[in-house]
Write a protein that binds this DNA or RNA. Structure first.
Lengths: 258, 258
DNA sequence: CGGAACTTTGAAGGGAATCAATCGCTGTGG
DNA sequence: CCACAGCGATTGATTCCCTTCAAAGTTCCG
């Protein structure tokens, strides 16, 4: 399948209307089966990849082979930008389900960008957006306790599904508890316990991969204080600000994972 | 003071020789006193800043005003790239000592980059390098215990001083234990204890801000296993691989903080 | 000289990790 | 169609690393 530059911009949610001059160019797509690796750390860098459908994890491996998850790219997300710096990817991308990506040769897109300033802006923004996302992760891992991290993760995931037109509050996790834990710097049991606690408190409903966010405000409230001592033993003090949860903490959950 | 494009490239350690055509352009510099803020989260984004001399911290603030340190930019490092995405900075930069930065208006540098492909490459690489650095931080925080994180921090700082022509093993910390802890997701006491333990084990010599790395190999070894149980009570099992420490774990310490 | 800020060190407590067992999906094959 | 292996998730008990709380020692600057 071929994808035009305009379609690519649409996928990334940037408006490139009126600059069809670059439309002569098109990009190929590539299908990746579940569990397959798109690129590995150390591979030569040639292309960025834009997820067209499906779900990935990106990760680094430590000397002993343990994986540190860096992000969970889904539709509209870009993978591989870490390869620009040194000419080799420093991370690895693995499909969590059958997926399709647009292959964007970097030499080509940057040449096109030179001709088309709006496209150039898209490229810079995409890289910067990644930067902001990772800063958000550092914030979450640095400031929040286990439950706050899991709450941030759920809210962020909901936001991203919402941005794609899916439900913001009901979705299926495509990754395991262990993978979530790796991203958040927690063990799988801790993730499981946090989810169970949220369920018991009525903030969410969980059943394996299925998650329904019932009280987003309560989840946002958990991101307020470091190591929120919210869910201990039995009942939880419901301090949500109503159904729509307008607690607001000045921190957009969209500024976290990916 | 004015800085030419070529000088700017040199500062960033990229070779732009032979492309003096862009040299007509020059950039202004700005002096920042110790404790002063270069830009704040929410400020409109116009420029990137390249550190010419001095030392900074970049950080995010949580709703209650607590700070999460994101990096410690020093000479040759770039600040402000997070502002490209949304047109506003999402982080804040504060000088830890009297410093000087080159002000690089983004509109101007990207226009120049269009005329000069090598400069364009520099720009993309600078952004990507930031991405890689933050991935390294996520790795450190996600995989290592307190001592491993501090070891990684020291090694990385040494590498960066070395790259600037200073000693890789003897340097002065310009930030407090609290700021180090914030970057690493630890409390100041924990940082202090780790440093004391390294000292007691003979891996380093510490005295307040002064640090001498005695056994870099031993420090690298601490980054091997999650929560390395190396320094308990009295003596430490010296398992360095000699003076130069060629233990090697496949993880460059240069791929961490900043 | 005096005081604020930073650091160090000790003791006690807590949150997440670890160890361990059970339960429940899933899909594979008889 | 159903039995069963295998992986993932949940839950409990215990351990331990880091935090918290506290106090004293240093450095540095006004």
């Amino acid at each position: 399948v071929q994808v035009s530059t305009t379609e690519l911009a649409q996928l990334l949610r940037f408006d490139l209307a009126g600059y069809a001059n670059a439309d002569a160019a098109s990009f190929t797509t590539r299908r990746i089966g579940e569990g397959e690796t798109l690129y590995r750390a150390g591979d030569e860098f040639h292309s960025l990849y834009v997820v067209r459908s499906g779900f990935f994890k990106t990760l680094m491996l430590d000397p002993s082979g343990a994986e540190q998850v860096l992000a969970f790219p889904m539709t509209a997300d870009v993978m591989g930008a870490d390869g620009i710096a040194s000419g080799r990817y420093t991370s690895e991308a693995i499909a969590l389900e059958a997926s399709e990506v647009v292959v964007v040769p970097f030499a080509r897109i940057s040449a096109l960008a030179r001709e088309c300033p709006p496209l150039e802006r898209v490229l810079y923004r995409v890289l910067s957006r990644e930067l902001v996302r990772e800063q958000g992760m550092l914030y979450v891992v640095g400031m929040l306790g286990a439950e706050g991290r899991v709450a941030a993760f759920l809210l962020n995931l909901g936001e991203r599904f919402g941005a794609l037109g899916y439900s913001r509050t009901s979705f299926n996790l495509r990754m395991t508890r262990q993978e979530i834990g790796s991203l958040l710097g927690l063990k799988l049991e801790t993730v499981s316990r946090a989810l169970s606690a949220f369920d018991a408190a009525g903030f969410i409903k969980v059943n394996l991969k299925r998650v329904d966010i019932v009280d987003a405000g309560a989840l946002r409230a958990m991101m307020e204080e470091p190591i929120a001592p919210v869910l201990r033993s039995g009942a939880a003090r419901v301090r949500s600000s109503g159904p729509s949860g307008l607690v607001g903490n000045g921190l957009k959950p969209s500024s976290l994972p990916a």
